[in-house]
Computed example of a mutant assay.
Amino acid sequence: MSSFTVLVTGCAGFIGSHLCERLLREGYRVVGLDNFDPFYPRAVKEQNMAAFAEHPHFTFYEADLRQGPAALPPVPVEVVVHLAAKAGVGPSVQQPAAYVENNVMGTLHLLEWMRQQGVNKLFFASSSSVYGNSTEKPFREDLNPLATCISPYAASKLAGEELVHTYHHLYQLDALNARFFTVYGPRQRPDLAIHKFARLLRASQPIPVFGDGSTARDYTFVADTVDGIVRGVRYLLSHTGVFETVNLGNSRPIPLLELIEAVGQAVGIAPELRFEPLQAGDVDITFADIRKAQTLLGYAPHTSLTEGLRQFVAWLPVVEVV
């Protein structure tokens, strides 16, 4: 039984809800924070929390980081996992200001709250998007993303990383910046590719293929990502003077056409394809070099795409919200 309390921002989301369950199972006390952003229905997020909302060691606050540090509850915690963000590369091209407001200013307000409360351990969820179309592969943490960002979402995540470093420098904040690589699995956001493809297949509709189908993503099953986060929390709680950036990926890019075929097999329906132009802001490939996370945290993803898709499809019909 852990004696530590963890604040999880974005606790009602896809990754956040899985993380809360894992932390509670391991005996942590969890304070959850979410603003139920209308990017997708509140009912979906409430379902995400259903399994742990009444847990005796879980406390929930509905609050919006955009409103400043005063909007956050003055609760004692030892470490913060900051998952809350406005997500999505494509929408960020259409609404860049909203991404700055949520992801940059929201992160700044959280950092100020931490400074005021005397909380000095932060796990910050960044994104593989910061690497853009880097020509060096696999993506290492020491590459310079300032030269490769190609979407407002990526820029907002990189700005968050820089703010975290600033607070590490000024206020001795111990911090891990973790760059996530295309997380999928049960509770995945409905706008993401695997979720969208499965729904289209079941509705007997064609699947849009942006580009020629050769773009590839480093798909990482949610339980593996959550394991990396929990290992990061343990690392922060047992070390001081920390500022590190790590990739939490799978280190195996899957081409889009291969992914679509795998989703079709998992659903049991042969895909019909509709080719369309590439979308603005999309990168050609994401490919994580995970050696640093392996060495620092003992991170070792093990879920195959076939098994991950099986678990996703098994979940899908139970939770669809019309």
Score class of each variant (00 low, 15 high):
Pro41Glu: 13
Ala43Gly: 06
Val44Lys: 10
Glu46Ile: 12
Ala53Leu: 12
Pro56Arg: 14
Phe58Leu: 06
Thr59Met: 04
Glu62Asp: 02
Gln67Glu: 15
Gly68Pro: 08
Pro69His: 09
Pro69Asp: 06
Ala71Glu: 07
Leu72Ala: 08
Pro73Phe: 10
Pro73His: 11
Pro73Glu: 12
Val75His: 03
Val75Phe: 00
Val75Ala: 06
Pro76Val: 07
Pro76Ile: 00
Val77Thr: 10
Glu78Trp: 01
Val79Leu: 15
Val80Ile: 02
Val81Leu: 09
His82Asp: 02
Leu83Pro: 02
Ala85Ser: 14
Val89Lys: 07
Gly90Pro: 00
Ser92Ala: 03
Val93Pro: 00
Gln94Phe: 10
Gln94His: 09
Ala97Met: 15
Ala98Glu: 15
Tyr99His: 10
Glu101Leu: 12
Glu101Cys: 04
Glu101Asp: 15
Asn103His: 04
Met105Asn: 13
Thr107Leu: 10
Thr107Ala: 14
Leu108Ser: 04
Leu108Asp: 02
His109Thr: 09
Phe123Pro: 00
Phe124Leu: 11
Ser126Asn: 05
Ser129Cys: 07
Ser134Glu: 10
Thr135Glu: 14
Thr135Pro: 02
Lys137Ser: 07
Glu141Asp: 12
Asp142Cys: 08
Leu143Cys: 04
Leu143Ile: 02
Pro145Cys: 08
Thr148Glu: 07
Ile150Gln: 15
Ile150Glu: 14
Ile150Thr: 13
Pro152Asp: 09
Pro152Thr: 05
Pro152Met: 10
Ala155His: 01
Lys157His: 05
Leu158Met: 10
Leu158Gly: 05
Ala159Phe: 14
Ala159Gly: 06
Glu161Met: 04
Val164Asp: 02
Val164Tyr: 03
His165Leu: 13
Tyr167Met: 03
His168Thr: 05
